[in-house]
Design a protein around this nucleic acid. Structure first.
Lengths: 122, 122
DNA sequence: GATTTATGTTTACACGCGTAAACGATTGGC
DNA sequence: GCCAATCGTTTACGCGTGTAAACATAAATC
């Protein structure tokens, strides 16, 4: 599985790829306070894990994701649901509801979602 | 923060406490294939992190949670939401919905939840 | 009282991660 | 052709984790 720092790099590539190491650093350097070497290392680990691929572009490489964000998000979330909420979504929502941590926007979107589910397969 | 293996021990204590190391092992040994020493180590790390407390009971200790499950669940889930879903619940539910990973039960419970929210503060 | 038994405490060790420095190779400029 | 800049690759190092063996200690038994 892919680590948290690695995921930061992936997020950049998921937003737009292919990208060079330099570009990735540029996009993430401020927020993360990373040096160049750090990004290089992370990219190499991601290569080893087959989460990204690299194609030569002159003297440098351009990196693209092989692992789809959808898949990563799903694995990660499912693992959390399994560990904390018996593998189901509703208990998680209930938890946030009890903690008063549902925004208006959340509630509106959830309503919308459920309506759409109604219309789906009758 | 508390690690995944440590959380397994916590779950036992959250279900019922106080418990001895032996009892914890008994409850978790099958599933985890852990030796006694492993549980002892995890308990000591949890003590150091102030996630559990120990009270003497004759020759042994009985352990109880200091960290509330609610709190742990919240920290862990919020961190995931922040990293993957802009910090909000609805996008997570949408994700599982798109993946057709909402059970009937989930959907029913979500509906219920939203109805209850209606009734709350008018 | 000496030995075994039951507990807890200390130490260990390999592995992944976050973070980077050092090294190497290729290329562009003079 | 040599030097400097630009990339990528290798190596490093401390820290947390998963997993446990080794050690210490106190109580129970013979």
């Amino acid at each position: 599985m892919i680590s948290e720092a690695e995921a930061v790099v992936m997020e950049v590539l998921w937003r737009s790829a292919p990208r060079s190491a330099e570009e990735i650093l540029a996009e993430v350097g401020q927020a993360q306070q990373w040096q160049e070497g750090t990004v290089k290392s992370l990219l190499n680990r991601l290569l080893k894990k087959k989460a990204v691929k690299a194609e030569r572009d002159g003297r440098r490489y351009l990196y693209s994701p092989l692992l789809a964000r959808e898949k990563y998000v799903h694995q990660t979330s499912k693992s959390l649901l399994d560990r904390l909420f018996e593998g189901r979504v509703a208990p998680l929502v209930a938890h946030f509801s009890e903690q008063r941590k549902l925004s208006k926007k959340d509630i509106a979107e959830l309503r919308q979602l459920l309506e759409e589910l109604d219309d789906e397969q009758p």
